[in-house]
Nucleic acid binder design. Structure first.
Length: 507
DNA sequence: CGTGAGCACT
């Protein structure tokens, strides 16, 4: 509540100036009409065009056709226009276009990339796992736009990374983390000694946690405390995610309980989500369910799915089915629909309830929902190759399948048993083995083995979580072929080396 | 005139 006496006592000269008039646009058709009018009026009004353009770029929901069209009608686009476009692409379903546009800006326009541009394009690299391009951008950051305030160019050239602005460094750390290059991320972090703020710390802690380097993450959090840098909500999430990935149940639970008292941050749904996952995965299903019911925040779809997935992992089908019935009875955001039904179908299938699974499938068809197919990407010499499950479209498909045959032969020598239970289809074992062998990450791996020199690290980015068979497969290959494999799945990283995985099979 | 920036839960 505002103190009205105090407000009344303020001299009127201190009143805030009225906000500058802004063109009010409420819908895309309105924006397009205004655009047409502005053009017809003859005088090209840069300011009006800018407003219309900004609106269409920000409200595009991924379709940036109009924004581009409008941008073309702006007589002399400035860096703000380019940056707005790049930002919109970097958040769109097709972030590669942010890089295309960046290249266009850098090569064909008099406008230079600046301190705003780099975080957007780095974000695109992070989302796509483009380490090659990300590294090149790292070098390019030495251009003026990314410099620290007060730094002179020759100082920056001498100590490039130290001259980076904190937010650019954070974007770099995040890019390296999400591209699987945790050591590079750490180097950037260690070298920004003067500019580290809570965001850089959090990005690094979250990165270490996602790579399964949980002790390092906690160490860093402690160092941060010693320097009296105040952690925020996201820092708390990163620390909890370190406990989660390490399976440190009591530590994580205690942290959640004491975080407000110790750090002044009230737990949010993300924090509860982390701990529910931690408890559920470790088999403490009752405690996890209890926590959801007792927490002061309304649980969302993510939280219920986390718990149900925990039931599936721990094979508690009674609880799973009870929770599924509960989930079905809830009014959910339609965004949750697809995720809910995919999970429910998986749970039924893994319990051998084929009829229920078929019904779930029908329901999805009726609602026009499509389960996203598994896809894996691998970067070779800066070019990205993407494989979809069962893919045979790649120009070198024949070689890839021949390589997979060779690998399977080797695995037979090792007495490797395919994890057939991971195939959630009502088919015979031969068909199951066939299905497993065409998972997208295996295709990407075979391609990587063909295309890179012996001993080279192989990095794979997957859109979903890997199945148990692919996980075991990667472990064996890392040993048999003497390759380190770094695989990003939907939520974390696995480093396979000499037959072991950094997650210690806890995921 | 200045607009636009980095890190978190399945």
């Amino acid at each position: 509540m505002l103190n009205s006496t105090l407000i009344g006592a303020l001299p009127c000269t201190l009143a805030a100036p009225p906000p500058p008039p802004k063109m009010e646009i409420n819908s895309m058709p309105e924006a397009l009409q205004l655009h047409a009018q502005t053009l017809k009026s003859g005088k090209t009004q840069q300011k009006s065009l800018t407003n219309i353009f900004t609106f269409s770029a920000l409200s595009s929901n991924g379709d940036l056709t109009y924004a581009r069209l409008i941008l073309h009608s702006i007589p002399s686009p400035n860096s703000f226009h380019y940056n707005t476009m790049i930002r919109a692409y970097s958040r769109s379903p097709d972030p590669i276009k942010a890089l295309h546009f960046f290249l266009y800006m850098a090569r064909n326009s008099p406008t230079r990339p600046d301190k705003f541009t780099y975080p957007f394009v780095l974000k695109s690299c992070a989302r796509l796992g483009l380490s090659h391009q990300g590294k090149q951008l790292h070098g390019a950051c030495a251009e003026t736009g990314a410099l620290s305030v007060g730094m002179r160019v020759h100082e920056v050239v001498k100590e490039q990374r130290i001259g980076l602005k904190a937010h650019v460094s954070t974007a770099l750390i995040d890019m390296y983390v999400k591209c699987g290059c945790i050591e590079s991320a750490r180097r950037v972090f260690d070298e920004i000694s003067v500019n580290k703020d809570v965001y850089s710390w959090t990005a690094m802690i979250a990165g270490l946690a996602s790579h399964g380097k949980c002790e390092d993450a906690i160490d860093l959090f402690n160092q941060m405390q010693e320097l009296s840098i105040k952690p925020d909500e996201r820092t708390m999430t990163s620390v909890l995610s370190a406990y989660r990935n390490a399976g440190l149940v009591s530590e994580g639970y205690r942290f959640l309980k004491t975080m407000h008292k110790k750090y002044g941050v009230w737990p949010t749904i993300q924090h509860y989500g982390c701990v529910v996952d931690l408890l559920a995965r470790a088999g403490h299903l009752s405690d996890a369910e209890e926590l959801i019911k007792k927490m002061p925040i309304k649980p969302d779809g993510v939280l219920w799915r986390t718990l149900i997935w925990g039931c599936k992992v721990n094979k508690d089908m009674n609880r799973a089915e009870r929770l599924i019935d509960h989930l079905k009875s809830l009014k959910m955001d339609s965004n949750d629909d697809c995720g809910n039904l995919v999970l429910i179908g998986n749970v039924y299938a893994s319990a051998g309830k084929w009829l229920d699974k078929a019904r779930t499938r029908e329901l999805m068809n009726k609602r026009g929902l499509v389960k996203p197919p598994g896809a894996s990407k691998i970067e070779i010499d800066g070019a990205v190759h993407e494989f979809i499950v069962g893919d045979s479209d790649h120009p070198e498909a024949e070689k890839i399948y021949a390589k997979l045959d060779e690998i399977e032969e080797k695995l037979r020598e090792e007495k490797y048993q395919p994890k057939l239970h991971e195939v959630l289809l009502e088919v015979d074992d031969e068909e199951k083995a066939f299905q497993l062998s065409h998972h997208s990450e295996k295709l990407a791996l075979a391609f990587g083995l063909i295309k890179t020199n012996p001993g080279t690290e192989i990095r794979i980015v997957k859109n979903l979580r890997s199945c148990e068979d692919c996980h075991a497969f990667m472990k064996v290959i890392s040993k048999k072929y003497h390759r380190d494999i770094i695989m990003r799945d939907r939520i974390r990283f696995h480093h396979f080396s000499n037959g072991e995985c950094s997650c210690k099979d806890y995921w």
